[in-house]
């Protein structure tokens, strides 16, 4: 065979490919450095006002839940019955204990709002982490191995999906006397992993057919290498999207359960519990109900907005 010469391809990163006439610039102008898909997503996120607003709010809430002492010197449990029913907010005393008034037992509502963040955020983040891990593992096993394993796990998912989330949580939590944050997290995670499992299973089934997975198999890669180096990193984007959007829902669920009296115990400081107690004073002191409710709404909204922004960045096709 005659010797062929091969021209070396010049340094021309970023050229364009078009599929069926739609122009896709698949590489940027002269990217001097490596640009991973994650860094591309981050590049998009930083320019999204939705993301910036929600991120600021979330950081604020996180700081509040980690170091509530930074925001108020009052304790949420100090009850001064002398202030009982003196509970009108004092809007000019910014950040003072009486800023938002007092509740029926004479406790500073401001302090309770600040300290209540911890319960909500812990439950929200805790449940999300738990369902993500649980759901991803189950979904990945079902999707990758297929066959009987898949049939079994998918039916199990369907069964759990058939349980109404709040009703199920109500029943489960009712059987616990001492409902700590961890009990609530476990109960919600126990019922909530199905959505992530389904998303993970779907993603894994698509990805395991990709040529790069086939290529890894052809090289003789082990199952764990294929799962953790090739499939998981590519399945992560849709999972993260679903998880961030679900986070808001778990915070709302915790508040709802606390409101119904089966969430955190009566001694815990939580927005849901305060909403429940505030309901009794709706006529005389509506702010005892409204203020914690607004906090729940703001938190849930921030996480939903955050999830939306993340989805737009990670999966532009969904837009």
């Amino acid at each position: 065979m005659p010797d062929k010469t091969v021209e070396k391809v010049e340094a021309l990163p970023g050229d364009t490919a078009s599929t069926a006439g739609v122009i896709v610039t698949d590489a940027g102008p002269a990217p001097e450095k490596a640009r991973s898909l994650w860094s591309d997503a981050w590049h998009d996120l930083r320019r999204n006002p939705l993301f910036l607003i929600s991120a600021v709010l979330i950081v604020f809430l996180l700081v509040m839940s980690l170091w509530p002492g930074l925001f108020t010197s009052a304790s949420p449990r100090d009850a001064d019955l002398a202030k009982h029913y003196l509970g009108k907010p004092n809007w000019s005393h910014f950040f003072a204990p009486d800023w938002l008034g007092y509740d029926v037992q004479g406790r500073s509502i401001y302090a309770r709002v600040v300290y209540g963040a911890r319960a909500s955020i812990t439950v929200g983040v805790g449940v999300t982490v738990a369902v993500t891990v649980l759901g991803t593992v189950i979904g990945m096993i079902a999707g990758y191995f297929g066959g009987w394993t898949d049939t079994l796990l998918s039916r199990l998912t369907d069964i759990f999906l058939g349980i109404p989330f709040l009703l199920g949580a109500l029943v489960v939590l009712n059987s616990f006397d001492d409902r700590t944050v961890w009990v609530v997290i476990m109960a919600l995670a126990f019922l909530g992993w199905t959505q992530i499992a389904r998303v993970a299973r779907g993603a894994v089934i698509t990805i395991k057919q990709a040529d790069y997975v086939v290529a890894a198999k052809a090289l003789g890669a082990s199952t764990s290498r294929i799962l953790f180096r090739h499939i998981l990193p590519n399945a992560l984007a849709p999972i993260i999207v679903v998880a961030t959007i679900a986070l808001g829902g778990y915070i709302a669920a915790e508040a709802t359960l606390s409101f119904l009296g089966v969430g955190l115990g009566d001694t815990a400081v939580s927005w849901g519990g305060d909403v429940a107690r505030g309901r009794e004073q709706l006529r005389i002191a509506p702010h005892t109900l409204i203020i914690p409710s607004v906090m729940v709404s703001i938190t849930v909204l921030s996480f939903l907005m955050f999830g939306d922004a993340v989805r737009n960045a990670l999966d532009p096709k969904l837009r």
Partner: peptide
Amino acid sequence: YAIKGLPPNLTR
């Protein structure tokens, strides 16, 4: 015979 190089980037 091979044309050298690549089709241009339409942004540049």
